[in-house]
Amino acid sequence: MKKSVFLGAATIAGLAAGAAVAGTVDDVKARGTLNCGVTTGLVGFAAPDANGEWKGFDVSLCRAVAAAVLGDANAVEFVPTTGKTRFTALASGEIDMLARNTTWTFSRDVDLKFEFTGINYYDGQGFLAPKALGVSSAKELDGATVCVQTGTTTELNLADFFRSNNISYEPVPVETNAEGQQQYLAGACDVYTTDASGLAATRATFESPGDHVILPEIISKEPLGPLVRHGDHEWGDVVRWTLNALIAAEELGVTSANLEDMSGNPEANPEVKRLLGTEGTLGEMLGLDADWAARAIAADGNYGEIFAKNIGEETPIGLARGLNGQWTDGGLLYAPPFR
């Protein structure tokens, strides 16, 4: 890669050559870091902590991909994106993948030319209401004022829900989750709607979470997943199978703690061996080395560990696995076989 000082000067300021053309896998390897688009701040999914370290469920996925491709879970440059900038950032090559609780929809996949590489969280849109309001169902919300994040699918679902139930509402558009939270607590809106996981995360930060209820209706399907640019299938495969590796690892009982034992154990389940690269050439097929999946799992643990650490019942957010359990436990997570 040849560069002039003019470009060189700007490289540090940011003019970096080399994206799209050579294929994202090679680009990421050449650059040495993964540019991963995340939200500007949703506690539990992606938010910088007091020390400026990004933490969260989506962040862990980025780290796993970085570990698989580059061998270093910390070689990630997190690019905060808003609802508005996320798709342009991905389309223009500013980021290599987007892990920003983005709902997989037909138009985003087909019309906007992105490729969803799987689902890392099955979500649905719900409503958060103060107990004092005395509402027990979303259908009783006729005439209510609803805070909703703009530019999201929740905004559209909300309009559909009220329209189909033939009741009226006043939307209060907010830009970020933090703003929605403030508006809701100040009473500028009666209920707050977003993905149920986000509601739980929001409620967890309240002073007295017990005074607020999440209404029983889930009014939409919100399959959230990472996405990459359309057309770069090698890179899409890497992201897709990294996610699958994390899910499969949980199913197969491979955790970050027993990873060493498992990979060293010749008696292990053959699928575990294939996953961890002690048998077969899966890594090579993907254009990576043999223990790519082992590194991904070592980064922040398998899917279950990541879930438990960031948004699980032990955390303030306190989400139950529910739909996001393994298929063997009645959930929807079902990784295709590693073969």
Partner: peptide
Amino acid sequence: AIAVGYADITATLGGITLNQTGRA
């Protein structure tokens, strides 16, 4: 207006419409 959620042209055409359609 975009900072306080007032539905002006920046919020409708340049905000929600842009987000929903991706026609930046």
